[in-house]
Design a protein around this nucleic acid. Structure first.
Lengths: 197, 197
DNA sequence: GATTGCGCTGAACGGCTGTTCAATTAAGCT
DNA sequence: AGCTTAATTGAACAGCCGTTCAGCGCAATC
């Protein structure tokens, strides 16, 4: 036996990435075997190596593509305006983007330690670039007197952690719609930088 | 060969837990083998089973003891006073406690998915109890008109995520001392619940 | 100084790991 | 219809996994 009816590279490839994403998110990279991924796709383990160099690349490519897509989407979402408007845009963008891709968000900060050193460095660089987007807004707002902030770096890390945390508990069929969640987080963010409603 | 000079249960037991904690925190539960833990302790893998029923119990016991110690310490740190004072006490307690135990904090929310269902449920119950401490303060403050809050549940989750995030980047030899970090976080928390400085 | 038993070794168990590759099949092209 | 080639199988590789256990050596007790 070999090639099955109607099977193609353009079909199996995405299925492999999707299966890896789902399984890594649910059980963790180290706990998932190539045979498990293959089983989910419907092929034997050996066939996976037509689509990835090795298991590590499967994880790294998912994370890298996620971070690059995040940065590209953020670029599109940048708006003109004062620091407060930009902060609101960043907050709403971050929450919306993260709520739509819970598995990618999850593995991208949960599986960092399973990356080989050079891969880890590459992801960290992308992550830093994203954090800098927020830090720049906070710095500009503080400098302009729009925000009241102590240490800008701590505020950046604290707000990123708060906003990213949303994907840890939000459920699509939960109590509140995504838009209401975004409103609530924006309310907290706005006040935390010293802007009264 | 067998028992070595000067080795005792009271010495090896804690060493096993400590080695497991360090290795789980660094590489993740699934990526660490019993032989690795044994190597760190200085014994053969079989000897570990004098101190734990199995690998899962090693993880679960670390997490359960951490959560129970956290709840016990929190109990000691509760103060009388209005909601604002209580929120400040909670914030400072949380940061101080988490900065002192980075590995335990890390594995306790990173390795949740590696717990067997009943163990997961037990840890989640303890985590919920801790979250409720904060939610109660927020509810009381909002009811008393001290805090200006939208959805209390979201605020609870958002603030917990923000505060716990501190252990993700804080380094003892970093730019700022722990007390200064706590001050900065308290400033953000206070403002986010609508209390102006 | 003999005896007891704790703490540990080292080997073994069955099973799973990531990865490679010759063989095989089917799809697409001429 | 024949040919080429992409896609997959299934077996094999060496090695590691968690866990068990008979046996051994040392410390403490009598």
């Amino acid at each position: 036996m070999a090639r099955k009816q109607g099977s193609h590279s353009e079909i199996t490839g995405p299925k492999v990435r999707q299966a890896a994403l789902q399984l890594f998110a649910r059980f963790g990279y180290a706990a998932v075997s190539m045979r498990q991924i293959a089983g989910e796709v419907g092929v034997q383990a050996g066939a996976l190596y037509n689509y990835t160099a090795d298991k590590q690349s499967l994880l790294f490519d998912l994370m890298r593509e996620h971070m690059e897509a995040l940065l590209a989407a953020r670029k599109e979402a940048v708006i003109a305006g004062d620091a407060l408007a930009q902060l609101e845009a960043f907050t709403r963008f971050h929450i919306a983007y993260h709520l739509e891709r819970p598995e990618l968000v999850f593995i991208s900060y949960m599986e960092l330690r399973n990356l080989e050193p050079e891969n880890f460095a590459a992801i960290e660089r992308l992550r830093k670039a994203y954090e800098d987007e927020l830090e720049t807004i906070l710095q500009r707002g503080a400098h302009a007197g729009v925000f009241v902030l102590g240490d800008t770096k701590i505020a950046t890390l604290a707000l990123i952690a708060m906003l990213t945390g949303v994907s840890g508990w939000y459920r699509k069929d939960g109590r509140l719609p995504a838009s209401e969640v975004a409103d609530q987080y924006w309310d907290l963010v706005r006040k935390s930088v010293g802007v009264v409603g």
